[in-house]
Simulated scan of single mutants.
Amino acid sequence: MRNSPELSSPELRGTPPDRDMVRTEAVRRIERLRNRSNRGLWAMALFIAVSTAALRNFGILPSLPETVRALLGHPPSATMISGALVIYTFSAIILVLSRMMSGSGQFSGFSHVGYLTAFYVFYHFARALDENFWAVFAAGFTILALESYHIWNHYSEEIRKEQEVLDAIERSRRA
């Protein structure tokens, strides 16, 4: 209790905090928040890269030998995969919208990229990727655009709050 950090803080001792230190910390937090606000764009870029490979029928990857395909078994039908894609798309959109409404800063864009990649792979193994590429791409683009907007909007608000701290410090310096 003698050297407790709570009791040694400048506010509790009656001395104001060092303005330069508070300003430096606010600038660091703003930079961190700006970096985090770009995560949606990085997820979108990754999805576009995966989609480009899928559009070319994953030609950049070596094809699986028929023995491995036989070991994996018969792929699900394109109709079954499409049904799962529809359910996933609506679920993901509802999840993002609920996080937007709650003000949560959670981000799951990279996991969405993983799930969407799995849909491309399932269609590829079902030999139905050409007919269903645009369905996966449209679903992914919608989900990731919404996720990107959500995370950008959330962190923009946090940056605005930190900017208010910086503005208050500047006003107090002029006074």
Rank of each mutant, 00 (worst) to 15 (best):
H154M: 08
A54S: 11
V50L: 08
W42T: 02
I60S: 02
Q163M: 05
T24A: 15
R174H: 09
F119Y: 15
S148W: 03
L41S: 10
R23W: 06
L146D: 05
T24L: 12
V86T: 14
T142A: 15
M21V: 15
H154C: 01
W134L: 15
R174S: 11
L55M: 10
F125S: 13
Y88W: 04
E162V: 02
H112P: 04
L33Q: 08
R36N: 03
L61D: 14
G114S: 13
L33F: 13
A139M: 07
V121L: 14
A49E: 08
E131R: 14
T79M: 07
I30H: 10
F141E: 08
E31Q: 14
I48Y: 01
E6Y: 07
F119A: 10
S77G: 11
S98P: 05
E6G: 03
R99S: 08
R28C: 12
E164A: 13
R13H: 07
I159P: 04
V136D: 06
I60M: 04
F107I: 02
R99V: 00
S104D: 13
E162W: 09
E11L: 07
A43W: 06
R99W: 10
E147G: 00
A135I: 00
T89L: 03
R13C: 13
V113Q: 09
L7C: 02
V22S: 09
H154P: 00
S98L: 12
I159G: 06
N153R: 14
S156G: 12
P17R: 15
P65M: 10
S104K: 10
R34M: 06
L33I: 09
S102N: 12
R19M: 10
R127H: 06
E25H: 14
I94R: 14
R127W: 03
N132T: 02
V165F: 01
L33C: 01
T142G: 07
V165Y: 00
R2D: 13
E164T: 08
H74R: 14
T67A: 11
H150E: 00
R56K: 05
S111P: 02
A126C: 11
G109V: 00
H74P: 05
R2L: 11
Y115I: 09
L95Y: 11
G40Y: 01
H150Q: 13
N57R: 14
V165E: 01
I60C: 01
S37G: 09
S37R: 07
I143K: 00
Q163H: 00
